[in-house]
Structures are given as structure tokens and as C-alpha cells.
Simulated assay, not measured.
Amino acid sequence: MSESVTIAVSRRAQCGEGPVWDPSTRTVLWVDIVGGEILRTELDDELHPLATHALEFPFMVGAVSPRAGGGIVAAVASGFVGLDENGTQTRRVDCLPAGVRMNDAKVDPAGRYWSGSCAYDFSSGAGGLWLLDEHWDATLVLPGLTQPNGLGWSPDGRSFYLVETQARRVLAFGFDPDRSRLTSSPKVLVEADAFTGLPDGLAVDARGHLWVAEYSGSAVHEFAPDGARVQTIALPTPQPTSCAFIGPRLDHLWVTSAAADLDEENHPDAGSIFLVTSPGTTGLAVPAFGG
């Protein structure tokens, strides 16, 4: 494999996160959690970035995804919001107590939106795993988590993966893709000793391999479905945060990063999006939210 790493989008995001390919607009949606920004990067036919547009919010935004009827859904400080194509808020679900916010989120195979919540100070057990269905009803599925982060599903939809960042573990659950239900208790798929830093966001490829960004680890890792490490790709920034396969063929791997607490002189590219070329695989399509 002859992958190389270049900068796809140069930006000093405080905590760039959650890239997702929007096939309806041929753009990439992502967020700056700390900056309270929803970002959309336009691409040309060869997937070179043309421009990045930011929609600012007065609160943290953990993740976003396209909606099947147009617009986006966002996991935010108080719960969830829906925005139309112009960025106007059309739906809002406040389900979190004070001191807790939504973090990473992703749409499941049935078009329902899953999000992890965490305390602002990452207090142990104060977070949880939430499900937002197509009727905009929010349910706490799994309480007692600390910093649930990257989410993803196996190609057949019968395994659900979740990163617990503070525990430095990747968990795997049995999953019913038709009813959007966890069907088993979690097992540890990747143990803490696989990381020197903190596992963060993830993407699943068409073979069922997991690609995990490592915050404070300057890397993205590929793991087989049994949790065995396949490869590690070094990145020229200390704080990679998440990754996604983008483009019509889902064959470009984009990795977001964070500039928070890093000196710009020594880390001038922190907060940018990095492109891993020739990752040797293609990604799984992430459905639009059905609500």
C-alpha cells in the first residue's frame, strides 16, 4: 500500500469533527465543536475542495448529517436540532440536563440518528447513548457512559461499534438493523493498549474494517472486524479527531483534526482536514436521517 497524506482543507478548527459525505449536494459536512460551527466544503468533479462555508451557532455542535427531505440534523448542546437548506431551524428536541452535551453522532442503516452524550468535564458515567427516530422522539438507550465518541455499523448492519474515549476502548454490540435496537451487551473489540493517545471518531469500510482516528496520537488506525490492527497511518498533526470516506465512490479518506491548546507556530496545520490517498479500500454509504 502506498498511501500518502496531504491537506485537503486548510483551516484552524478548534475541534474539527464528524465529516460526512452528502451525495445529494456532492459536499462534505463537518463541524467545529468548540467553535460552534457547521461547515460544508464544496468539491469539484475531481474532489478537490473549492470553498468551505460556515454556519455559526451560539452553542457547541457535536455532529451533523443530511436529512432525506433536505437540510440537516445536528447533535447539539441541548439535544438535537433540524435545519432546512438555508440553515433555518425547523425542529428542536431538548433532552439533556445542564452540564451535559451531545458529542459524535451518525445515522444507522434504517435512517435513525444515534448520538453519544457526555459531561462538559467528562465526568465518569454522566454520558449516554441516544437514539433520535424519524418522528423526532429522542430515547436514552444506554446510560452510564463517560465520553461515547465514534460510531459505526458493520456492512450487514448486525454489529454496532462505539468508542469510549476516556476508557480508550472500542466496543462492539449486536444490532438489529431493521428495528434500530442493540441486541447484546458490549464486548471490548479493541483494548486500551492499542492506543498511546485517545481513540476518537471512526469510519467503517466496505470490508467491515474500522478506521479510528487517535487524538493525541498523530495517527489513524485500521482494525479488522475481530479487532486486530491492520495498519497505522501517521498524520502530521497531534490531534486527529475523526475520519470518513467521501466522494461518489467513497474512496477518499478525510481525517479531521483539532487545533485546541496547540501553538500555531509549532503546529501550523492543526485543525485542518487531511486526505489519505490510496487507502486501499472504499467506505460504506451513510444513509440520510429519515426525520
Rank of each mutant, 00 (worst) to 15 (best):
T139M: 08
T139E: 13
L142Q: 14
G144I: 01
L145Y: 01
L145A: 05
Q147K: 13
Q147S: 13
N149Q: 10
N149P: 00
G150M: 03
G150F: 10
L151F: 10
G152Y: 10
G152S: 11
S154L: 08
G157S: 08
Y161F: 15
Y161A: 01
L162M: 05
L162A: 00
Q166A: 12
Q166I: 15
R168P: 04
R168H: 12
A172R: 15
A172D: 07
F173K: 05
D176I: 13
D176A: 08
D176W: 01
P177V: 11
P177H: 02
D178H: 10
R179K: 15
S180H: 12
R181W: 06
T183S: 12
S184C: 02
S185G: 15
S185N: 14
S185W: 06
S185Y: 05
V190C: 08
V190A: 04
E191P: 01
A192S: 12
A194H: 05
A194I: 03
A194G: 03
F195L: 08
F195S: 00
G197T: 02
P199W: 09
D200M: 03
D200P: 02
G201M: 03
G201A: 04
L202Y: 07
A206Q: 13
A206G: 00
R207Y: 08
G208M: 13
G208R: 07
H209P: 04
H209S: 13
W211C: 05
A213K: 00
E214V: 12
Y215L: 12
S216V: 11
S218H: 09
V220H: 11
V220A: 10
H221K: 14
E222N: 14
F223T: 06
G227H: 09
G227R: 04
R229M: 15
R229N: 10
V230L: 13
V230D: 05
Q231E: 11
Q231V: 14
Q231G: 08
I233D: 04
A234T: 15
A234E: 15
A234Y: 07
A234L: 14
L235C: 09
L235S: 00
P236M: 01
P236G: 06
P236E: 13
Q239F: 02
P240Q: 09
T241C: 02
A244D: 14
A244P: 00
A244R: 08
A244I: 11
I246F: 12
G247A: 12
R249C: 06
R249V: 07
L250W: 07
H252I: 13
V255E: 07
S257K: 04
S257C: 00
S257A: 02
A258W: 08
A259N: 01
A259Y: 03
A260C: 08
D261Q: 14
L262D: 05
D263E: 14
D263P: 02
H267C: 13
P268H: 08
P268R: 00
D269A: 13
D269Y: 03
A270L: 06
G271N: 03
S272Q: 02
L275S: 04
L275I: 08
V276N: 00
T277E: 14
